[in-house]
Amino acid sequence: MTLASTTAPVASRAWLRPGPFALTLPALLLLTLLFMLPLVRLFSLSFTGGFGWYEKALTGGLYTVILYRTFEIAGIVTFFSFVIGYPVAFLLATTTPKWRAIGFAFVMLPLWTSVLVRTYAWMVLLGRNGIINRMLIDSGLLDTPLSLLNSRLAVILGMVHVMLPFMILPIYSALTRIDPDLPTAARGLGASALRILTTIYLPLSLRGIVAGVTLVFVVSLGFYITPALLGGGKVMMYAMVIEQQVREFLAWNFAGALSVILLAVTLVMFWLLNQGVARHLRD
């Protein structure tokens, strides 16, 4: 094994190796200080007066429906980010260095522009007098402009746009770590292009997919600006409700309870997802 490990491709072996825990310790301590302490404070706030705030949050329909809709939107955004992001990551990982550089510039560009600017770009595109509507009307396909903007569709488009790099980057990184001989070998062993994708690329980039999906889903749950600006106020996200409770109604205990619920549901979902992935990897 010692001999083999020096010459066999490091990449194909590194995919399951645990990270060097010791090196991340200072960062962990910092994160504890910055994130855990406020979290504990939030937690204790939400329990002042027993479970009353939780009762309010979980009954009466309003907040559970918003929670459900928030997860729904985050799920749709994650799904489309994956469906668009995986092929892009795949192209980036397999193309020539020149096209990779150009592709990366396009992927990274949105990360370097502010969310507001990106959101405004969608308004210019989707507005009643926007480029798309004007093209449809000028070409005679439409008489009156479509309401593309200020809708759930616009929110999802805008969010997918913002989140795509977070899906592409981890998947790209996982794909480049796959030994290029593996798909070649699979092809020689009789696998079609589709089977190579499902039996080699997808399982070997699973870590990247899980990372991308987790990142996109969790960040999407907390989205605030994009839904408010592109949804015309008709799309309500949980984070917007929490913010409203904190800033407008000063109901911090209740906001605390809402936050804890959002956190708990998110954690449970990802625990389940990770369980599923871990089981899959064992099989």
Partner: peptide, 20 residues
């Protein structure tokens, strides 16, 4: 002919075993 159709077995220099 496509490699998948050739029915040729091949052992690669680094074996190319599927790690997963």
């Amino acid at each position: 002919l496509d490699p998948a159709q050739r029915n040729i077995g091949m052992v690669f220099q680094n074996y190319a075993l599927f790690p997963h």
